[in-house]
Design a protein around this nucleic acid. Structure first.
Lengths: 235, 235
DNA sequence: TTTCTCCATACTGTATGCAGTATGGATGAC
DNA sequence: GTCATCCATACTGCATACAGTATGGAGAAA
């Protein structure tokens, strides 16, 4: 990812036949690839808050034309990663602690509700999936695996829980909020606490026991804990 | 709005100096104007669910080039009004009753929480603003004003309440959800009940009395009522 | 020195061009 | 009649072109 090398040599859209019986694998559009690349650049600090994102130079950097870059920037704007100033173009958004708190608050609302729903909907298959993720995450956190992987596992646990909740609108919103939250944590917080798999264990137990209210409350507290990490940074 | 007449004769962006001391009024970009126009066409049924939105013909209809149309379609896709199928282009989204229920559920979560926050934050100015809106809305609903206006006033009440709550992330999400909800009500429901200003009155009283929990619960029930309208349509 | 004006520069916003792909109907095989 | 194949058509996705605007600094005026 350090050498962007242009996004892809084979830019003329082709398809790949999957080995299994999954019918066809859609190659992502250029604008989607650009979007993901830019989001990574922003999240990992290679593009700093406030920085001006000139379409032409990004296009050159990524080996594409301005068009897909432009569309990617608009998408990132809707997701809160960049700001579009009329006539000035795109700038990396400068998150504030207030905004971070607000995102965590909304996330807590939506995820705790999804957790409540999950406790109502859970079936054996869902319970198994959660157990697998828990086992993996718990072990990885014990071993102090690479932080990138820990973040990924943590996110997988939350995402899966929300998916089991089953409200697709909520699922989509939470996915966005999680990505923003990850950025804030990486940007604002210097030293991130490892995600608490002890709390995940409690939540999981409540969900499997179909104790909806308890599951909801536990998830609420759980996310509030991560939000509390933000409080140290003031303003 | 029936004769799109091209969006604007003076397409070369110019600015207008406001009469008052509001400094400058930014003319919206073409893509934003197109976005709004298309959203109206969709919400008011001029573009029907499932319809293929070919960029060229829309561009011609609106008197602009494909480019701003394309960007507007992508924005509308993010907002849930159109679906983009890779290689096929944009189609007006076909809402389902399930999806509508989900939107109302999330809306209820976010707005009831904002209402709780509003009860904590409210000041004299906020209370005055709410009272004015209530008075206007109550009167209009008594008079059985034009439905379009009733919907507008209803939305204003909710938007103002959310704004007083003060969580900007929530404000932005709720604004999106309200627009979708409005579409669903117009599309799915044949006969929409007038918004209940009696319930608004109760909510407003609780907020002004700073009774946060009661305000929250009332708003939750209030939105559930409108959601219940959806239940008649099955699936 | 300070402030205003003007202009060169860089970049956005919109339009147009072009290559490649999805689709549906015509055609032919069975 | 049914099914597979092929091709014309329409439209997308990306690239490029062009016009117009925001900005910052040079130079003039005070």
């Amino acid at each position: 990812m350090t050498t962007p090398d242009s996004l892809d040599a084979r830019a003329g859209a082709t398809r790949q036949l999957a080995r299994g019986d999954v019918p066809v694998l859609q190659r992502a559009s250029l604008r989607e690839q650009v979007r993901q690349a830019l989001e990574e650049f922003i999240v990992f600090g290679r593009l700093a808050p406030g920085e001006h994102l000139a379409e032409e130079s990004l296009a050159e950097l990524l080996g594409v034309s301005r068009q897909p870059v432009r569309e990617a920037l608009q998408s990132l704007s809707a997701a809160g990663f960049v700001d579009l100033r009329a006539g000035r173009g795109a700038f990396v958004h400068e998150p504030t602690a207030r905004e971070a708190r607000e995102v965590f608050h909304v996330r807590a609302l939506l995820e705790s509700d999804s957790c409540r729903l999950a406790a109502q909907n859970i079936d054996d298959d869902g319970a198994r999936r959660l157990e697998v993720i828990y086992a993996e995450g718990h072990e990885a956190s014990q071993r102090h695996d690479d932080p990138r992987r820990l973040i990924e596992l943590n996110r997988t646990f939350h995402r899966t829980m929300t998916e089991i909740g089953g409200n697709r609108v909520s699922i989509a919103l939470v996915a966005d909020l999680e990505r923003r939250a990850g950025w804030y944590l990486a940007t604002i917080i210097t030293n991130r606490a490892p995600s608490s798999w002890a709390e995940h264990r409690e939540i999981l137990d409540a969900v499997v026991a179909r104790d909806a209210d308890r599951a909801r409350d536990l998830m609420l507290n759980h996310i509030d804990h991560s939000r509390d990490l933000l409080e140290f940074t003031g303003q």
